[in-house]
């Protein structure tokens, strides 16, 4: 059973408390009704399914109930980091250098030396 760090609770919690919610950073168009068939196909059906780093959404459904984002290595099943919904997608190069060291716990944004964005959209703390 994985341990997942909820970026809202700021705690490592067992996988049982969470539910996966598919790939992250797929933006719903503000003018979705006007999208072409191709654009809608890309938005709704096409997923990256990588071997390696995967940006994905999780919900702390049996905890604070918040949706958040995570970077997980689909080969080792390790979470490299988790971050709040609305925060910027972390740079893949940075994550690669951290892959080996993120052994036991998940790393927060601060651990990665990244800057936490100012409070904004979706951050209702």
């Amino acid at each position: 059973m994985l341990l997942i760090r909820c970026p809202y609770c700021e705690e490592d919690r067992p996988e049982l408390e969470f539910r996966n919610a598919g790939e992250a950073h797929i933006a719903r168009s503000a003018n979705i009704a006007g999208e072409s068939d191709e654009a809608f196909e890309t938005f709704f059906f096409i997923r990256s399914n990588p071997k390696g780093l995967h940006y994905e959404r999780w919900r702390h459904v049996h905890g604070c109930a918040r949706f958040f984002n995570a970077v997980r290595d689909t080969v080792s099943d390790k979470f490299l980091m988790t971050y709040k919904a609305g925060e910027a997608k972390p740079d893949a190069e940075t994550l690669k250098t951290l892959g080996a060291s993120a052994a036991w716990t998940n790393l927060s944004t601060e651990h990665l030396g990244g800057r936490r964005p100012a409070r904004g959209k979706g951050d209702t703390e």
């Binding site: 959404r57 919900r59 459904v61 949706f67 919904a85 609305g86 959209k121 979706g122």
Partner: peptide, 14 residues
């Protein structure tokens, strides 16, 4: 409830 929360938290947080 999950569906509503998902959209409220991530697509329409405004």
């Amino acid at each position: 409830m999950n569906h509503m929360e998902d959209y409220l938290q991530t697509e329409f947080p405004q």
